[in-house]
């Protein structure tokens, strides 16, 4: 039993990173229809930024903040300079993002190298509760994610901006008639989603090493989470992220490890076949639930 609990606990931290990515994608995709497959590279760059700061003597927290800010800035520049031009033809944005993947990866490889990067554990220590080892750093990752999710959730459901965002996703034209500057919201959502990806990267490298190539598996998981949870649905992304994260951990722990990635995709295919609008439903609009 405690082995099973241990597996659950282990998977939570991985699920957290997936949730952060999934929320970003579901908001961006839900509002703008932009399919940015380079979103995983945003996470990778976030992690690399943290590594850069830490390996040059900075503390982890500085590295984390740097990652969030830098990737947010990157998102802003790309939205303004690139994706904004494709708003009328989202398919073009998608194709551009594929090229962006290669550009971002090779930027990192060119200036550093293609090897794994890691940082020393920012927080060491293990709590033991009832025979289950809870690695402190992992618990922190889960905690940070929970806080971010809560902030996002309440921001969208309670604040004036969240209201305007939800309206924009439902009906861009009418929202603008109310005075909502929809283009600015699109940029804002893109920046926010990017910042979440940067945060995810910083948290990930705090746990284990990353290479310039981790983006691809992450982003597919992120889209799976967004689709399974229902596009634009933050709560759905959280639930789907938990399910997928658990799936990953349990399949590695109990199934054939070589097939780990396949299980998550099989699950996604199954869910989308049965409920095409996602588990919690909704193609239109970021909603509270």
């Amino acid at each position: 039993m405690e082995i099973f609990l241990q597996q659950l606990v282990n998977s939570l931290s991985v699920a957290s990173v997936i949730i952060l990515i999934g929320i970003g994608i579901t908001l961006i995709f839900g509002l703008t229809g932009i399919i940015n497959f380079a979103h995983g590279e945003f996470l990778m760059i976030g992690g690399m930024t943290t590594w850069l700061v830490v390996s040059n003597g900075g503390g982890f927290i500085i590295g984390l903040v740097a990652a969030v800010l830098f990737v947010g800035l990157l998102g802003f520049v790309l939205e303004r300079g690139l994706f904004r031009l494709t708003l009328d033809r989202p398919m073009n944005g998608f194709i551009i993002s594929l090229g962006l993947i290669v550009v971002l990866q090779h930027f990192v490889i060119r200036f550093w190298n293609s090897y794994q990067k890691s940082i020393p554990e920012p927080l060491s220590g293990v709590w033991e509760i009832g025979g289950v080892q809870i690695i402190v750093m992992r618990a922190v990752v889960v905690l940070i994610t929970a806080v971010v999710v809560a902030i996002t959730f309440f921001g969208i459901s309670r604040s004036r901006y969240g209201l305007a965002l939800r309206a924009s996703v439902a009906d861009q034209e009418t929202a603008s008639l109310m005075g909502v500057p929809v283009r600015r919201y699109i940029t804002g959502v893109f920046i926010y989603g990017s910042m979440l990806a940067g945060l995810g990267g910083a948290l990930m490298i705090a746990l284990f090493p990353i290479t310039p190539f981790i983006g691809s598996t992450i982003v597919v998981r992120g889209f799976a989470v967004a689709l399974i949870g229902g596009l634009g649905n933050v709560a759905g992304a959280v639930v789907a992220g938990l399910v997928l994260g658990l799936m990953d951990g349990l399949s590695a722990g109990y199934g054939l490890p070589e097939w780990t990635e396949a299980y998550s995709f099989a699950l996604m295919i199954l869910i989308l076949l049965l409920r095409p609008n996602g588990l919690l439903g909704g193609t239109a609009g970021p909603r509270a639930v």
């Binding site: 004036r160 209201l163 305007a164 939800r166 009906d171 005075g179 239109a284 609009g285």
Partner: peptide, 19 residues
């Protein structure tokens, strides 16, 4: 063009966005 998924109150509140 009512926002079907927002409540009546939220629709009203949104109307005042530009103020």
């Amino acid at each position: 063009r009512i926002f079907a998924d927002l409540t009546v109150r939220e629709n009203l509140r949104l109307g005042a966005y530009s103020r």
